[in-house]
């Protein structure tokens, strides 16, 4: 049974909220573009609502395997020093943008 395709409505508040969560600060032109793109994404998702899945078990994983576990053993095949480029490091720490005033 197909459901009718609803018209998603994204209001400016929702755009602001999503932008805040993504730590973005779009200008007005970008907001219009974002709105159009987000509505297109939502419409795509709405297509997933079309099939009737009321009697179908959700699939969390394409593979039915369970209990893939490893023993509690230290294995360090990598040298952590290789992971940090000197240009972003300081005294062994990584440097990130300042997160607190």
């Amino acid at each position: 049974m197909n459901k009718p395709l609803p018209q998603p409505l994204i209001d400016p508040k929702q755009i602001s909220r999503v932008a805040h969560l993504a730590r973005l600060n779009p200008d007005e032109a970008e907001r219009v573009l974002l709105r159009q793109e987000l509505e297109r994404i939502l419409r795509s998702f709405d297509r997933l609502e079309w099939p009737d899945t009321r009697n179908t078990e959700p699939i969390y994983h394409p593979h039915p395997d369970t209990n893939r576990l490893r023993p509690d053993e230290v294995q360090s095949p990598f040298d952590p020093a290789d992971l940090i480029h000197e240009s972003i490091g300081q005294d062994g720490f990584l440097m990130a943008p300042k997160t607190m005033e």
Partner: peptide, 22 residues
């Protein structure tokens, strides 16, 4: 003795970024 999803050690107080992997 090792981390939850990888084999890195879990010792406290080691120099920064010496107990991590990809």
């Amino acid at each position: 003795t090792s981390k939850i999803f990888c084999g890195c050690p879990t010792l406290f107080g080691r120099p920064p970024n010496t107990q991590c992997c990809p």
